[in-house]
Nucleic acid binder design. Structure first.
Lengths: 135, 135
DNA sequence: CTTGCCTCTGACGTCAACGTCAGGTTTTAG
DNA sequence: CTAAAACCTGACGTTGACGTCAGAGGCAAG
């Protein structure tokens, strides 16, 4: 498939895909005229790239670890970096959880004391989708 | 206390504190000569600001919601925004958890098949701090 | 053939949360 | 009193992951 279709399928911009290539995260076959062509599997790879970007990894780090993650195989060296990143993500999850709980506390403390902020009905509560402590 | 001490106590730079003030997140008493002075409570506020920044909230959003969070009181309007941010954070936690689990899978799949990647000893495992599925 | 859409490279623009530097004032230590 | 350290405002620099625009080709349809 060409770049436009890959962009549509993976939900990222054409610009982003060219940027990924520039960063060594994604390679493409070139047709004679220079146009990029991708195999089906490229969409999965792009999703994986986005997943890692969303976790706060840099282009450089992703470039280093992406082969391992795709192949589900690691060398001792890469495993150390993978573990380091995992620990960072764990810490981030912990911090986010504390932040979320703090917001939750504010939300559920029945509003401001002196504002006539009653529980009128459940319409507001219903809008808040399901929430347990740690799903 | 003055800005340098607050910076030291809260672990952020002096520049960051001035930036927070510029964004309306932190106010300071000014001495006659124009120097900023902060009460003890400012350190907690700075920690809270950092907490919210780390959760991906923008300066604008933090400025809007910080009073609610500090006072643990919310109006119906602010509660909606708080809930929206909490949902965003929840989604982020879920995504991070999936990413972490993916990295974990790669890490624990006993290395690359053909590399002589043995479990030599527990020194490597011990270095990986405690890890359960969902602490 | 030409119309219209897709693609190419190259290069500058953006945005947020600060870093850093310049040039000057204030506070503190000796 | 004086030198060092801390502080002030103002302004430009940085970084990463793209957005956007310009100008030039490529490709199937009518």
């Amino acid at each position: 498939m060409r770049i436009g279709e890959l962009a549509a399928r993976s939900g990222v911009s054409v610009r982003a895909l060219r940027y990924y290539e520039e960063q060594g995260l994604l390679d493409a076959y070139r047709s004679g005229s220079g146009q990029r062509h991708y195999p089906e599997a490229a969409a999965d790879r792009v999703h994986l790239i986005q997943m890692l970007y969303a976790a706060g990894l840099s282009s450089r780090t992703i470039a280093d670890l992406l082969p391992c993650v795709e192949a589900k195989a690691s060398t001792p060296a890469s495993r150390a970096r993978l573990a380091a990143e995992r620990d960072r993500i764990d810490a981030q999850i912990a911090a986010l959880t504390r932040t979320r709980d703090r917001l939750d506390a504010v939300i559920h403390l029945s509003g401001s004391p002196e504002s006539g902020c009653a529980w009128i009905a459940d319409e507001d509560v219903a809008a808040e989708a399901g929430h347990s402590a740690t799903p």
